[in-house]
Amino acid sequence: MSKDRMSASRRLDVALALVSQGDYIAAIDVARAALAADSEWDEAHFSLGDMYERAGEHENAIEAFRQYLMLDPADRMGAEVRLTLLGATALRDRLPPDYVRALFDDYAPRFEISLRDRLAYRGPELLFEAIRAHLPNMPRPLEALDLGCGTGLVAEVLAGYVDAIDGIDLSPRMINRARAKGLYRTLIAGDITDIPSEIGSDYSLVIAADVLNYLGDLAPALRAAHARMKPGGLIVFSLEEGDVFPFDLGPGQRFRHHGRAIGEWLTECGFDLVSDAMGVLRQEKGNPVEGRILVARASDAFVHMAGDLIMPVDPDQAAGQTLH
């Protein structure tokens, strides 16, 4: 670390302490002093942008985030997302993968405590309830693929109901946490829109709990999942619903998807809708966050499951149900 970076780091620490006290104007002054000591420190530019945005100085925030991107084109801190929410750049079809990877690598040690204890997260349980009735009639061995597996919360819920479960996640640190639970047959750090060859095929069940919210265009992930599924296999996933077609980016930096767009993506990627229900995924700032829990069937062929034929349902009849 250079002498200038050391000086800049001390000043930025002070600025961040002032932010925690709500004194954004003073924090901005100290952060600018940090950049005077080291103008090439990307993190300081990003932090300054955040401070400007908190202070309501949006034009200055936009400039600071753009300076950050010049120094870190990979965008590990998510400046492009902030620029999108500020209306300064066009909406892309997914969050930057390097940003998502860095976000969850950092989040991994406190992920479960935050989700379960603070946010009352119930995504895996809602997905399980959506497919529970189908599980006894599915042929064995029943192999499942967990997309965006995180620390393994889905595997905990499915333990005893499937014969094997594999997982994939962008974050290596999340993968390490999941591996320590000993519930997965295979775990791979990778992108769910371009699933590595180490992940198998012919899955009867694919699960995506609160991961497709980080993608705008769902077609690449749905196509990749379909390519790894048995004909007639089930996919179950959660989404947050939006009013903008086909999707928009919410203030929580997650995509919200329009219902008609979801149906079009499913059809395009070879799926028939089985069920579509609403449920409370988690709490944010004391308010319930509702999501859609969708089950769809890979439609290459109809499959008899122990005498039961799973048929596509009318989307108008499927919609509007509620999971508890």
Rank of each mutant, 00 (worst) to 15 (best):
residue 153 L to E: 03
residue 230 K to N: 07
residue 199 I to N: 07
residue 225 A to I: 10
residue 260 R to N: 14
residue 226 H to M: 06
residue 162 V to L: 12
residue 168 I to W: 11
residue 256 R to D: 03
residue 240 E to A: 12
residue 204 S to F: 08
residue 185 R to C: 15
residue 256 R to E: 03
residue 147 L to H: 12
residue 268 E to T: 05
residue 175 I to P: 01
residue 159 A to H: 15
residue 162 V to S: 09
residue 218 L to G: 06
residue 224 A to Q: 10
residue 149 C to F: 02
residue 195 I to T: 06
residue 202 D to K: 11
residue 245 F to P: 11
residue 230 K to P: 02
residue 158 L to S: 06
residue 159 A to D: 15
residue 152 G to A: 14
residue 174 M to N: 12
residue 176 N to Q: 15
residue 168 I to S: 04
residue 173 R to E: 09
residue 150 G to M: 11
residue 265 W to G: 04
residue 155 A to S: 03
residue 161 Y to P: 12
residue 169 D to Q: 13
residue 222 L to Q: 01
residue 234 L to H: 00
residue 172 P to I: 13
residue 256 R to S: 04
residue 260 R to S: 15
residue 250 G to T: 08
residue 273 L to I: 03
residue 238 S to N: 05
residue 161 Y to T: 15
residue 152 G to Q: 00
residue 277 A to T: 08
residue 271 F to P: 00
residue 271 F to C: 11
residue 151 T to V: 14
residue 197 S to Q: 05
residue 228 R to D: 02
residue 265 W to H: 08
residue 243 D to S: 13
residue 272 D to M: 08
residue 163 D to K: 01
residue 159 A to I: 07
residue 255 F to Q: 09
residue 269 C to L: 10
residue 273 L to H: 00
residue 150 G to L: 01
residue 180 A to R: 11
residue 270 G to R: 00
residue 257 H to K: 11
residue 214 Y to S: 05
residue 259 G to M: 08
residue 270 G to Y: 02
residue 203 Y to C: 00
residue 166 D to G: 06
residue 227 A to T: 12
